[in-house]
């Protein structure tokens, strides 16, 4: 550890400590006075000294305003130098935050943006406020069309009670499941409510949910989710990109890989394996292999008439 000499300058320390508070958005009047007041000064004297430091910052080009009980940084020379496409990306992420129903997540984004704003130059702030969401696709349908459903599903995920859900599947048949709510997944202009029923993950598009009832049972612990183990061969093994919740268990001599998948929607996994054609082989569980064969038989049966 580098030794720091004992000789230091008190005013220098104080001005930087005030700046530190300002950059962390925590410069309340009391905390700033704590820095100024070394214990011997009267409160009135401390306030005068504080004014001197604020003047110093202003002369240097750092503007500070008192809003309520807090000092806030209005202008500072210490900036992050973003380019316009960076700011457009930031705007895209900012506007997407409104689609998140969880108020905790929104607060986290707001806090991050506040800290970032303190470090933007004036021109960037103006650009960011005026630029339209840089997204090529209008994502507002997420929020506007499904706002109520999103709110309900987010609430279910937080409350951790068992649920009984009725929904229509891709063929329009009504199904009922009892299980555990997990999370909302945003997939390719589709929002799915992910739940676990008997160890199997189901991603149900929220517009397909007919009804959800909360059951009195509180989920003490999550049951383990069924894992699917499969082998990928040939060129697919070389170019495969692991998905969320997957890992490679083994690489075989011929270059094939054994992948373990946990937590993917069972129907999506089947469709994925069928797309892999002969480059994929399911190792376990047996019921999954049977379900995959059943789907393949149904596909072939479409042509038997």
């Amino acid at each position: 550890m580098t030794r720091i000499s004992n000789k230091y300058n008190d005013s220098c320390i104080k001005i930087f400590e005030i700046l530190k508070l300002l950059f962390s958005d925590s410069a309340t009047y009391e905390r700033v006075l704590e820095i100024i007041d070394s214990g011997k000064d009267e409160k009135l004297t401390a306030a005068v000294v504080l004014n001197k430091y604020l003047n110093t910052l202003k002369v240097f080009g750092i503007n500070v305003e008192k809003r309520g009980n807090k000092y806030e940084l209005v202008k500072s020379p210490y900036k992050i130098d973003f380019e316009k496409p960076d700011l457009e990306s930031l705007k895209l992420l900012m506007s997407t935050a409104q689609y998140i129903s969880s108020s905790k997540s929104r607060d986290i984004v707001e806090q991050f943006l506040k800290m970032l704003f303190l470090r933007l130059n004036d021109a960037d702030k103006v650009y960011l406020n005026n630029v339209k969401c840089g997204c090529s696709t209008d994502l507002s349908f997420y929020y506007k069309q499904f706002k109520d459903q999103i709110d309900i599903c987010e609430k279910l995920c937080v409350e951790k009670q068992k649920i009984e859900i009725s929904y229509s599947d891709t063929k329009g048949c009504v199904n009922t499941l009892i299980g555990i709510p997990i999370e909302l997944k945003y997939q390719n202009r589709k929002i799915c409510f992910s739940m676990q029923s008997a160890g199997i993950i189901h991603d149900i598009p929220i517009n397909k949910i007919n009804s959800v009832n909360q059951l009195p049972n509180i989920i003490a612990s999550y049951n383990s989710v069924i894992t699917v183990v499969f082998r990928l061969k040939k060129r697919l093994a070389k170019s495969y990109k692991l998905k969320d919740g997957e890992y490679i268990q083994n690489i075989e001599k011929d270059g094939s890989i054994i992948v373990v998948n946990k937590g993917e929607d069972i129907d999506k996994l089947i469709a994925r394996f069928i797309r892999y054609q002969n480059n994929c082989e399911v190792i376990s569980p047996k019921f999954f292999k049977e379900k995959l064969l059943e789907t393949l038989s149904k596909m072939i049966a479409r042509y038997k008439n």
Binding site: F82, E83, P85, D86, E88, S89, L90, L92, L93, T96, A97, Y99, I100, S105, I108, V109, F112, G134, C135, S136, T137, L139, Y142, Y186, Q187, N188, R189
Partner: peptide, 25 residues
């Protein structure tokens, strides 16, 4: 983690230029 959550929401609906810009940001 929250920024990644936002990224996951937009990533499948945006084009390559926007993906590039987010990466650059």
């Amino acid at each position: 983690k929250t920024l990644v959550k936002l990224y996951k929401i937009v990533v499948k609906s945006i084009d390559i230029r926007e993906l590039y810009s987010i990466e650059h940001f």
